[in-house]
Each structure stands twice: as structure tokens, then as C-alpha cells.
Amino acid sequence: MSQFLQVFLSGLATGAVYALVAIGFTLVWQAAQTVNFAQGEFVMVPAFFVLIGMHWLGLSFWVALLFGFAVSIVVLGLLFKKLIVEPILPHGGITLIIATMALGILLKESAKEFYGAEAQPFPAMFPGDQIDVFGAAVSLRDLLNLVISLGIVILLTLFLNRTRTGRCMQATAQNPGVAEILGVDVKRMVLYTFLINAALAALASFLITPVYLAKFSNGETLGLIAFIAAIVGGFNQIRGALVGGLLIGVLDNLTATYVTAQYRAALPLVLLIVIILVRPQGIMGTSEGRAV
């Protein structure tokens, strides 16, 4: 029992971080009808911004964290939108997908060339104090990961449903043409989406890197898992991404513990295929394409 609880709770904590990345996928999908294949690298890079702040600029950890957050929003939000998405999007989603792939290589190779190929330790925002939950060792950090992710989903949903800007963003996602006619500043709304995506990626980076360590190649695995989580949960729903992330985090651990370790990575993929066959809109998704 304690073994089950252990892997279940750890899986939830890891899954919560996957969920944050997966939400980014759904947001970008809604804003631009494209998949950001550099999303994993978007989670890898902010940790390096913080390390640069600490080790090259001599900032203290918390200041460096703010610095990293700000730089991430500018580089991964604003610049990404202006320099890559805006010029390429009119030529179609596939071209943009390819461009994000190239961007992924660019970010990965840059991190490696300018900060080294070896993993770097990364300080944690929260203490790793252990709590004993019926025989399972859970760290405070794990619990906070979970709380923060849930909090983000609730806040984001409230923002999208209850504020004017949020509703404008939803309108943009559903039908940019009509939204424009109704006086919504579509360009600005799309920009907001990309800024939120960058902020979520940075947050996910700060939460997972203390355990996962800062390494140039981190994005490959994280990006793929989060992408699968987003599809499984439902590509057009924020709460779907949350459910998808948590589900994959838990299932991965349960498979490795009770079924097969060699094929642990296969289960989410099989799940994905089954879901597409049975319920193509995802577990939480709605079949009508683009509601937030």
C-alpha cells in the first residue's frame, strides 16, 4: 500500500509539471492553430536564464528567478511571437511547425555551446522537507508543485471566463474574423496568449529543474510527454491538459512499478492511440474545436 501511495503521489507531483507545459500546447494551439515543437526547449531555457543571472551577473537566487522570468517572457513570448510566429503563420500551420522544430534545435544547441553539455544543479524555490503520508515519503516541494499547478489552472480559467480580456481572448480563439468585427484587438489577444505560454513554461522550468537538473537536452523528453498529455487530455481544454498531465505522470510510475519498466514509455502512447480511436476530442475535450 505504501508503495502504491509512494509512486502515485510522486506521479501526481511530476504530472503537475507536465500539465503546466501541456497547457502551453493547448494555448498555442488555440491562438495559432499550430503545435510548438520547441515547447520542451521553452521549459529547458528559463532555468539557464536564472543560472546566467546567478553565475554571470552575480544576482541572488530570488532576483535571478525574477530576471529569468522576465527574460523568458520577452524572449519566449514576445520575440517568439514577433520574429517567428507572425511572419510565418500566414503561410500555414505546417510551415510554422517546422520553424518551431528548427527553433528547438537552435535553443538546445545554444544552451549547450554557451553553458556546457553537462547537467547543472539548480536551486529549489521551496525546501525539500519530507512529510510522511501513510508510509510514503512526500516532499513539501512535491505538494507545492501540485498546489501551484492546480492554482494556475483555476486562475487561468477564471481569467478567461470572468475578465473582459479573457473573454476577448476566447472570442479570438473561437473565431478571429468575427472577433475582429466585434472590435477585439485580435493581434493583442494572440500576443497575450504567447506571453502566458512563456510564463507557464518558465514556471514549469523553475518547478521541475531542481529535480530534473538543468541540461540542454531536457526539452526533448519533457516536450514529447507534455504534448502527449495535451492530446490525451483534449487539445482544446485547459482542464484537459491538467488531467492529461496528471494521468501520464501517475500512469508512467504505475506501469514501471507493476507492469513493465522496459515499456513504461509505451503506455502513454498506447493510451493516446486508443483515445484517438474512442474519443478523438480527448478525455476532457469538447468536439467543437476551439472553446477555451
Binding site: 510522486s10 541540461k215 510510475n253
Partner: peptide
């Protein structure tokens, strides 16, 4: 375990419940 695996909870939990006298760990750095 997979290369670049995120969560080692399952691996360690499995070893813990099998309770061997020692464990041989053969992985890359990180």
C-alpha cells in the same frame, strides 16, 4: 529506467520493497 527519465519514484520504490542487501547502479551522470 529510460534515458532522461523525469521521475525515479517507481524505480526506487520497487527496489525498496524487494529489499536487497546492496544495489548496483549503472546509469549516466544526471
Amino acid at each position: 529506467s529510460e534515458q532522461a527519465q523525469t521521475d525515479y519514484a517507481a524505480d526506487v520504490a520497487k527496489i525498496k520493497s524487494a529489499n536487497p542487501d546492496a544495489v548496483f547502479v549503472y546509469m549516466n551522470q544526471e
